[in-house]
């Protein structure tokens, strides 16, 4: 199993005839994603990479029973595309588009939730459950099926970390890029909850960056609810205040949203934060090793005790590290 995305998802591509939409449709099909159709108004009836193109999402859903959509349309049409997908009954909407106005996202965020649908993004690389399906633009070949859940606000930085995990022989259950915008449909907390409940995920990697307070909220959530080891990386320790660092959401404003605050909040609940992307794989390897041992030893003890053990392990480790320095 994986979270949000398995082989069963029937996927349509909104903007399938555009340059990016067409290219990534082919990539997704090659990876094994169950692409059942696409939507481009004015091009209904055409065939793209072997799948039918429809005039509207409603038509596509009627004809294919699609439950998932991925959006590749330009920013001025992206909000409309999200509403169209959700209104047609799509349950998982992945919006790749960068540049969606924040004011619109405020409404989209709440509307999608009232409809019981899930939005990933915008401004994100998408989601992949290695070996099962990918809905997005990430290079499939760097991933490996396994038991680590990854959630990230970034794109290529996620690839960097996933690549390091795979090179170390550590596979992933699901990898989600939740997006670099200030308002996004799925947050760290939603994903952490899903990984916590997913029986095939044994450890979690959280990749955050400057801006907002999502990492701090994630830390509080992990302390309360998450019973699996978590390792983090935070980008932007050297970012100056008041400057947007590429992502619309990556900005330190009014002194809040710094990397230091986020690292502190995560450390405070026993989550080790890697100094370099490659160290994430080392930290996860250690966590998997120690949690494996622990499960053998105290397999029937209540979960709360486990958490206490993992915290003390983290403390010991950071103490060791400090001693080395």
């Amino acid at each position: 199993m994986a979270i949000y995305l398995t082989k069963k998802n029937k996927v349509i591509v909104q903007g399938i005839t555009g340059r990016d939409g067409a290219f990534h449709t082919q990539q997704m099909i090659e990876y094994g994603t169950n692409i059942v159709g696409g939507v481009t108004p004015g091009k209904g009836g055409e065939i793209m990479h072997g799948v039918p193109v429809f005039e509207s999402v409603e038509n596509a859903v009627k004809a294919t029973n699609a439950d998932t959509s991925v959006i590749f349309v330009p920013p001025q049409y992206a909000v409309d595309a999200i509403y169209e997908a959700v209104d047609a009954g799509i349950k998982l909407v992945v919006c790749i588009t960068e540049g969606v106005p924040v004011i619109d996202m405020l409404k989209v965020y709440h509307y999608v939730r009232t409809k019981g649908a899930r939005l990933i993004g915008p401004n994100c690389p998408g989601i992949i459950s290695p070996g099962l399906s990918k809905v997005g633009i990430m290079p499939g070949q760097i991933h490996k099926k396994g038991k680590v859940g990854v959630v990230s606000r970034s794109g290529t930085l996620t690839y960097e970390v996933v690549h390091a995990l795979t090179n170390k022989g550590i596979g992933q259950s699901t990898v989600i890029g939740i997006g670099g915008d200030p308002i996004i449909g799925t947050n760290f907390i939603d994903t952490l909850q899903a990984y916590n409940e997913d029986k095939d995920t044994e450890a979690i990697v959280l990749i955050g960056e400057i801006g907002g307070t999502d990492e701090e909220e994630a830390a509080r959530f992990i302390k309360k609810f998450v019973r699996k080891p978590v390792v983090a990386f935070i980008a932007g320790r050297t970012a100056p205040p008041g400057k947007r660092m590429g992502h619309a959401g990556a900005i330190i404003s009014g002194g809040t949203g710094t990397a230091a605050e986020k690292v502190k909040a995560l450390n405070a609940v026993g989550i080790p934060v890697a100094d370099l992307p490659s160290q994430v794989a080392d930290l996860i390897a250690e966590k998997l090793k120690s949690s494996g041992k622990r499960q053998m030893k105290i397999s029937k003890k209540p979960t709360t005790k486990k958490a206490a053990v993992s915290k003390s392990v983290a403390k010991k480790k950071s103490a060791k590290k400090a001693a080395k320095k």
Partner: peptide, 17 residues
């Protein structure tokens, strides 16, 4: 010179590291 904002920030941080 980096591709991707997150990786670009991480690269700066690595330089500092």
């Amino acid at each position: 010179i980096v591709n991707g904002a997150g990786l670009a920030m991480a690269t700066m941080d690595t330089v500092k590291h």
